[in-house]
Amino acid sequence: MKYTIQINEGPYTHQASDSAYNFTKAALEKGYEIFRIFFYHDGVNNATRLTTPPQDDRNVITRWSELAAAHDLDLVVCVAAAQRRGIADADESARNGKDADNLAPGFRISGLGQLIEGGIIADRLVVFGD
């Protein structure tokens, strides 16, 4: 079974990213394939490395980065949604004349076509959000 995961909500405000993380981890443990994880709407806020939660709380962002590194996951952030919300890698930042970038390790910025492709290629697309 091959999954694409879509995350539509930001970290901490909403449980979507936590649930998606737990789902992804469980699927990997069962030996299923995660084709792609796509961050959309406020879900793009899961991809900023500037996030600094209190020390006694989970770090939703580094958790994704670490899971991606361990399992070679494809974490894709929608470029249009990211631009609206101030999430940028160095290239995007330079292209838009900004003075900083904030994309966390293991994430990449790309277009909505990546979500559609995820829907076409995976057996199941699972959406986390409201």
């Binding site: 959309y40 076509g113 829907g119």
Partner: peptide
């Protein structure tokens, strides 16, 4: 592909960003 639109058009961004996915999805000849 079935896009289920459940929210009012303006109070949140969901409707607008859903439409953006629909337009891209249509270009994939699905």
């Amino acid at each position: 592909f079935l896009y289920v639109n459940r929210k009012a058009p303006y109070g949140t961004v969901y409707a607008l960003e859903s439409l953006e996915v629909v337009l891209i999805g249509a270009a994939f000849e699905q």
